[in-house]
Design a protein around this nucleic acid. Structure first.
Length: 429
RNA sequence: CGGGGUGUAGCAUAGUGGUAGUGUGUUCGCUUUGGGAGCGAAUGGUCUGGGUUCGAUUCCCAGCACCCCGACCA
């Protein structure tokens, strides 16, 4: 649970409570016609995101709240495995990328955005962080005593996708978390790698998509046979995987063949083809980047050794889109409580005095509330509430007061209850 | 990058070689308060450039943007 909202620093990090009359975004009945994906349609209709150009979306106040919730879940898990948060730059030095042979467009499949400097030089907009970390850490890693370390950051990165699509699930600019592990040897690396598998499962469980997210074996590059992707089953996904539903093991189509099936001890007859979206991946890098940057340390015997690296990424905006793809109904989004923009949607039907008192007492108790204090008809407030998808809907109306208090309804349930004002806090904890 | 499609008001749409219509939104008035309620009024529009034509939003060409399929995708 998010008792961290009481942390004074985190408290300032997002909109913990809000009057809907002051929320400048509006809901809409219809999605723009150029948005086909469910996630973009619902997120735009609800006022979570705004499209700037294809694959580039502004996070509006409601959307930012969701991103911050996801970010904090990830942060807790990363810190739990001794991750250390920092922030790498977006503008990237060409020389560094030439050192790893990833500056040429040919070598990275036209993924770069590059910008010109006034003096004629050239910079790249970061699309991943291996080079930045490996190069920087040369200054700080000398001894075996300096290892292992696990720096990570959240930031917007840029990928010059030839065709961006699927709403916020494949953007040209998107928000992600990347952690890199720097270990002394393969054993130390492998132990951490397994810890990260668990951490990632914890994250996907916590954001409410654990049931449909599977560890999937994918190609591993030159330093390990496999990498591990975390694939959520949805027809909106872009990947094809073969899933053994009994064991929960899946294989990406890109490496699917008889040899791999046998090697993994899977029964080909039990594998089911599924569409899925990659919400995270972990990857053993070996010395792919420590070598070009000569990232070494002196071991106990004074011997110089290359650092063993691993990378661990999650696209937060893609994850947000995936959650919407997996959790909605014909009326709108159904946010899992852990990532909902607010915990309570408080609706006043002409009872602003009573509703305001409840708003004050809830926020004083640290409950995140979106209070719909607008002068609009009940039907509109109810429709908006379903569209926005906040877990608890609390209605204060003449009818509810006559019946003994306020009406509480969960977004994912058809039933509602009347409870006294004093009981509200207890019911939503 | 290959193929296909679409550009009309904030949004969704109709239609036309000659005055561009509807829904929704927004504003105002009245009414209404448990499922985007009602009545009335107002507001607001043909992607950009070129061509054909007496006249182009419509036809032609180019550009740009967006969407879809494929390819690509640590």
């Amino acid at each position: 649970m998010h008792n961290i909202i009481f942390d004074p620093i985190f408290y300032l990090a997002y909109n913990i409570a809000m009057f809907q009359s002051k929320l400048f975004t509006k809901t809409r009945k219809e999605a723009p016609k150029d948005e086909v994906s469910k996630n973009a349609q619902l997120l735009i209709r609800g006022g979570f995101i705004h499209k700037e150009v294809a694959g580039v979306y502004t996070m509006l106040p409601l959307g930012l709240n969701v991103i911050k919730k996801i970010e904090n879940i990830i942060r807790q898990e990363m810190n739990a495995v001794n991750g250390i948060e920092m922030r790498t730059t977006v503008l990237q030095n060409k020389d560094i990328w030439e050192a790893s042979n990833r500056w040429d467009d040919e070598s990275v499949a036209d993924i770069w955005f590059k910008v010109q400097l006034k003096n004629g030089g050239e910079l790249g907009l970061s699309f991943t962080n291996e080079e930045a970390y490996a190069n920087m850490l040369k200054q700080y890693i000398n001894s075996y005593r300096d290892l292992p370390i696990y720096p990570y950051d959240f930031k917007n990165i840029f990928r010059n996708e030839i065709r961006s699509k699927s709403g916020i699930m494949r953007g040209r600019e998107f928000y992600w978390k990347a952690l890199y592990s720097f270990s002394r040897d393969e054993d130390e690396h492998n132990i951490f790698y397994e810890k990260m598998k668990t951490a990632y499962q914890n994250i996907f469980n916590a954001v409410g998509i654990g049931d449909t997210t599977y560890i999937t074996l994918a190609s591993g590059g030159s330093f390990s046979q496999y990498s591990h992707e975390f694939q959520s089953i949805t027809d909106a996904g872009e990947d094809t995987i073969y899933l053994d539903e009994s064991s929960g093991v899946a294989v990406n189509k890109e490496i699917y063949n008889d040899e791999v099936i046998n090697q993994l001890g899977l029964d080909k007859g039990k594998l089911v083809e599924k569409r899925a979206i990659e919400v995270g991946n972990i990857f053993s890098l070996g010395t792919r980047f420590s070598e070009p940057f000569n990232l070494t340390y002196k071991d106990e015997n004074g011997e110089e050794k290359l650092v063993i690296m691993g990378s661990y990424g999650i696209g937060l905006s893609r994850l947000m889109g995936t959650i919407v793809e997996l959790s909605s109904d014909e009326r709108g989004i159904i946010w899992p409580e852990s990532v909902a923009p607010f915990k309570v949607h408080l609706l006043s039907f002409g009872k602003n005095e009573e509703a305001r008192a409840l708003y004050d007492s809830l926020t004083a108790s640290g409950v995140e509330v979106l209070y719909d204090d607008r002068e609009v008809n009940p039907g509109e407030k109810l429709a908006d509430s379903d569209l926005i998808g906040i877990p608890y809907r609390v209605v204060v109306s003449e009818k509810s007061i006559t019946a003994g208090g306020v009406e509480i309804k969960r977004r994912n349930s058809l039933d509602s209850d009347i409870v006294s004002i004093g009981e509200v806090l207890g019911r939503i904890k």
